[in-house]
Design a protein around this nucleic acid. Structure first.
Length: 481
RNA sequence: GCCCCCGUAGCCAAGCUGGUUACGGCAGCGGACUUUUAAUCCGAAGAUCGUGGGUUCGAGUCCCACCGGGGGCACCA
């Protein structure tokens, strides 16, 4: 096995060279000597000449090698597609006008023992793209661009929030009690404590504890885990932005959210008008606000409210083909009706407001509409992008809500919440009026990059294990003792 | 979990209502070539057709099961 260098001094990225020589004339040589490194992606041998394409993380450039001047020319033409190499030489423009680096010296930095996919057709098999992302990133330009943009989007998000004095924190991912959302958790076990722990389904309750602790503007960007179905919009682990803002309410939060999303779009894309799935989305502020019941009236043509007699509500739901269950109250029925009749038709951006309290166990009651919560979700490009509300601050009411959830759980709803005594204790110390927000970061990236499947914005999406034999099939962890 | 579709060499990809040795391209191997752009040209090679059963004189092709993937439904963000 050949031993490759431990380190190598590179003087330029490919894009730096390209940017600095935009109008070099064909057939001219500069006296600029550069050292670049990357993967050899193409090669065209021409007898005593050879051309290659070197790709690094910034772009591609042609390599120009000549038998009379390139050291070990035969070795150079014997390189494999995919080999990592460093090349030193002058910057030049070929007679045909292709910017190139003349290969005056070259070194192999790492060899490609497996051959890369077809240089023209790339990979069409999604399974290969997701399992072997290390290949996909080289072969599929859009994949590389999407993940670069993802980084920019998250960086922009952080910057905009820091600019508004939000403090970034990290809270536990291992929770003794899963909380903060209605979802089925993954369970794991801590051996030394001999205790079951849950991978978090949301950081919400910890972040609000921090507001109790005096962090008036706080946010976390991190992974959450939900043991549920997978789809083009769902990965079992996904990234969420959650933020909490003391002394603010849901209306403030709607303004912050739309400005944040429009601001990120402007920073990363340079515009708030984007195209998604062939349709235009105008992210410019302000976004439309509409209550859930207004939308139901618009799209289903029926007037409903929490005052509608429940039998009538249930009958309306059944008219629209909603699967109703016996324990559903009026709030749950209205939510189901909304999801069945409106959600698929909304394009947005639109804030859906005034969710029933019954389905919003952590939100504060609407100050003017008893039974409703000061809660909103934004629908953008036909997809739920975020969820926010004025936080419920009263510990006694929170306890009642938890207990109602636990009753649902006892009735067989395994996504219902569990009473979190420590969270109640924190609320008893006092939480001021606070607004909270959760944004699906993967979905935001999908929106801004025009991607229609979440697997294309997650580097290593969850897949079934590839191997059915060997270690993966047996116990990876010794459960004994 | 349910329904539909897909699986042919490292990659892309033909293969018709079942019918000899499964068409090609790229990459890899051998050779030619001093300005190529998916270079071109010549040559040789590479496939238990996802796996296992079955139907048939004969299966890549039809049937069943399993594995993996995609889409949809359900659940959810």
């Amino acid at each position: 096995m050949t031993d490759f260098p431990y380190r190598y001094d590179v003087t330029h990225s490919v894009s730096e060279i390209v940017d600095a020589h935009t109008d070099l004339e064909a057939g001219t040589e500069t006296d600029t000597v550069v050292t670049i490194a990357g993967r050899l992606m193409l090669r065209r041998d021409q007898g005593k000449l050879a051309f290659g394409t070197l790709q690094d993380s910034s772009g591609r450039i042609q390599l120009f090698a000549m038998a009379k001047s390139t050291p070990e020319f035969d070795g150079f033409t014997g390189l494999s597609i995919g080999d990592w190499i460093a090349v030193t030489g002058i910057v030049m423009m070929t007679r045909r006008g292709e910017l190139s680096v003349r290969v005056d010296g070259w070194t192999v930095l790492g060899s490609a023992g497996r051959s890369f996919p077809d240089k023209w057709h790339g990979i069409s098999d999604p399974d290969t793209r997701y399992r072997q992302r290390y290949v996909d990133l080289w072969v599929t330009d859009e994949a590389r661009q999407t993940f670069t943009q993802r980084s920019q989007i998250v960086a922009s998000m952080r910057r905009l929030l820091h600019d508004q004095d939000f403090v970034e924190v990290e809270t536990p991912m291992l929770h003794p009690i899963p909380g903060g959302a209605l979802a089925r958790p993954f369970v794991t076990h801590h051996n030394a404590l001999d205790a079951d722990l849950y991978l978090r389904i949301a950081p919400e309750l910890y972040l609000k504890r921090l507001v109790v602790g005096g962090m008036e503007r706080v946010f976390e960007i991190g992974r959450v885990f939900r043991n549920e179905g997978m789809s083009t919009r769902h990965n079992p682990e996904f990234t969420m932005l959650e933020l909490y803002w003391a002394y603010a309410d849901h209306a403030d939060m709607m303004r912050l959210t739309e400005e944040l999303v429009a601001g990120i779009a402007t920073e990363v894309l340079g515009t708030t008008t984007i195209e998604y799935d062939g349709r235009e989305v105008d992210l410019s502020t302000p976004w439309r606000r509409a209550t859930m019941e207004e939308l139901i009236a618009e799209h289903a043509g029926v007037e409903v409210s929490l005052d509608t007699p429940i039998d009538e509500l249930r009958a309306i739901c059944e008219t629209f083909g909603v699967d109703t269950k016996a324990h559903y109250g009026p709030g749950k029925l209205i939510l189901e009706l909304y999801e069945k009749t409106c959600e698929a038709e909304l394009w947005g951006p639109v804030y859906v407001t005034d969710y029933p309290i019954e389905v919003s166990p952590l939100s504060r009651e609407h100050r003017e509409r008893p039974g409703y919560a000061e809660r909103f979700e934004a629908i953008v490009a036909g997809r739920e992008l975020c969820n926010g509300f004025s936080e419920l601050t009263n510990p006694a009411i929170q306890r009642e809500r938890f207990e109602a959830q636990e009753a649902d759980r006892d009735a067989g709803d395994d996504e219902a919440m569990v009473v979190d005594e420590d969270y109640l204790r924190a609320l008893e110390y006092g939480l001021p009026g606070t607004a909270g927000l959760g944004v699906g970061v993967d979905r935001l990236v999908m929106l801004l990059t025009g991607t229609t499947t979440i697997r294309d914005v997650v580097l290593f999406p969850t897949l079934k294990p590839e191997q059915v034999s060997g270690a993966a099939d047996g116990e990876l962890v010794d459960e004994e003792e």
